[in-house]
């Protein structure tokens, strides 16, 4: 889907060992598979089925997503930042596409 666009909010800096709040939003229809088109034919399911956040290769959160997650999926969660490094956010689409976003954080 060409219109899929991730947005991520991560503070630019943190002190070592600090717990920070992260918010993520991605534009995606999250077609549930429960709907029908105007001709009455079922619209096939196409959702993002998994979201992960890792920091310097270690996992923060790994979410298994079902069709009951709203259109334009939103997550808010917390991470510990042991050192400077990079967050990697990954969304997995039913159609095999993978969307990623990265954010660096400095210690200061």
């Amino acid at each position: 889907m060409s219109d899929v666009k991730p947005r991520v909010r991560v503070p630019k800096t943190a002190s070592a060992g600090e717990t920070i709040t992260i918010k993520t939003l991605i534009s995606h229809r999250m077609e549930s598979g429960q709907r029908k088109d105007s001709d009455g034919n079922p619209i096939p399911r196409q959702i993002i089925n998994r979201f992960t956040c890792d920091f310097n290769g270690e996992n923060v959160i790994d979410v298994k997503m079902e069709p009951a997650i709203s259109t334009n999926p939103y997550f808010e969660f917390q991470a510990v930042v042991p050192a400077a490094g990079e967050f990697v956010f990954t969304w997995y689409d039913d159609n095999g596409e993978v969307y990623t976003e990265t954010k660096s954080i400095a210690i200061g």
Binding site: T19, D54, N59, D62, V63, Y74, E76, F77, V80, P82
Partner: peptide, 13 residues
């Protein structure tokens, strides 16, 4: 995961 800052999360359903 090991770097979770808390065991809580928010979403929209």
């Amino acid at each position: 995961g090991p770097l979770a800052g808390s065991h809580e999360a928010s979403t929209r359903i």
